[in-house]
Amino acid sequence: MSQKMRAAVLYADWDPKPDFKLGAKDIEGRQTYLGSKVWRNPRVVIEERDIPKPGPGEVLIEVKACGICGSDVHMAQPDEQGYIWYPGLTGFPAVLGHEFSGVVVEAGPGAINKATNRPFKGGEEVCAEEMLWCGRCQPCADGYPNHCERLDEIGFNVDGAFAKYIVVPDRVVWSLEPLKERYQGMELFLAGSLVEPTSVAYNAVIQRGGGIKPGDNVVICGGGPVGLAACAILKRQGAARVILSEPEPARAELGLKMGADYVINPLKEDFVHRVLEITDGYGAKLYLEATGLPTVVYPQIEQVIWEARGLNATVVVVARADAKMPVTGEVLQVRRAQIVGAQGHSGEGTFPRVIQSMATGMNMLPLITKQITLDEVPENLVTLRTDRKECKITVRLDKE
């Protein structure tokens, strides 16, 4: 094995805004939980890196496929002052990429495959969680690893999978064996790379949103990969009407393939009127905010909740945004509604349930609308800032 590999690395300047205060979990000059307030002048370069070695309890994976996430785009996207858009945990320089699948090459001492409860042998097809939870802090002990007090994130503050190889702890590695009856060859790895973003949607609408009962209506705002994955999940759960709000025609059409029954173009139609019309005035049980534009989208959701005959609506906020939502408490009180936030995907059996759903017919492959090489990562990160015709652009590393 060559001792070097090529990787897409994001660099940025540590230049905190005047109102920024170093937090207890921040590291001066290296890491912050408030990325958009600190990092400036992001740039992505393809460079050579050392191939990592697995330590005790770790696994070396040869990456086959890795999707570009909206967070990758926003970490590499400067605003008018040069600060990155992404508001969360970040530590640069770091290799980007976290939606990946591949093959186990080598395992460190004590690294166990959950599929067999035995040490990894090598050659196993796997995917991995993006959130590296410690398992020892209070949130982890309480069953909330997404909110780990020592959280690291692949491709955010530790090196990610836009590279030929990656090392991860065995606790976040999941076997793709159940998918092999339905997918073969490269399709297996493309499907495997979609487990992570689909798990983000699953965590949002099932774990945090509480799911639905068969016959309930749902509204998904935003036809990106997470919003479209939510369409598939909720239709599979028995939603009577899955309503997708999405202005981009290509994504709207894809939404219908993924499980949406109706699509609203909020730029050309009255969102509130159409949701009430489609649901016979009852509104929806669950609303997903997956646009990242809460100041625009939430007031419309709130108006539907206020005017609808149905009670007990849940609004789940999954898109990351450095913005305050204009919430009217009276609407939540009178209509017995609630707002919940959703972060990440780990815990409560999310990954294995998504894998089993995909293995038994929930086909997520249509989300991938373009496949690229590692060299094309920087230009496609720029393209995705404004071009919404593509849904999921996936980097293939099988020929690197």
Rank of each mutant, 00 (worst) to 15 (best):
M364A: 08
N363H: 12
L311R: 10
K4Q: 15
R241A: 11
D159E: 12
L234K: 01
L397E: 00
R236C: 03
K389P: 01
L194T: 00
D280G: 14
A8S: 04
T116P: 03
V395I: 08
Y33Q: 14
F92Y: 14
P16M: 06
R40D: 06
D79V: 08
R136L: 15
H98G: 02
L293D: 12
L151Y: 10
L60Q: 04
K285F: 01
V316L: 05
I84V: 14
K121F: 14
S175T: 05
V9A: 08
P87E: 13
K399R: 13
L288A: 04
S346G: 10
R40H: 11
L176P: 01
T328M: 13
G344H: 04
A204V: 00
D142A: 14
E187Y: 11
A191S: 06
S71D: 04
P197V: 05
K389N: 11
G329C: 01
G227Y: 10
V317I: 10
T198R: 11
Q343N: 14
P266I: 03
G135K: 09
G209R: 04
P93V: 04
P178R: 08
G135N: 05
E48M: 12
I372P: 02
L194K: 04
A94H: 07
I112Q: 07
V126A: 00
M75W: 05
E99Q: 10
A94L: 09
M186S: 13
K164W: 09
G210N: 02
A359G: 04
G281T: 07
R182D: 12
E379W: 05
P366I: 05
S175F: 06
S36M: 05
L276S: 02
G55H: 10
K257P: 01
P266C: 02
E307M: 10
G35S: 10
C137I: 09
V272A: 02
D216M: 00
R118L: 14
Y183L: 02
G91Q: 05
P266M: 03
E302F: 00
G209T: 07
E302D: 02
D216N: 07
A7L: 05
G97Q: 03
Y282A: 13
N157Q: 04
M325R: 02
L22Y: 12
A161L: 03
F189Y: 15
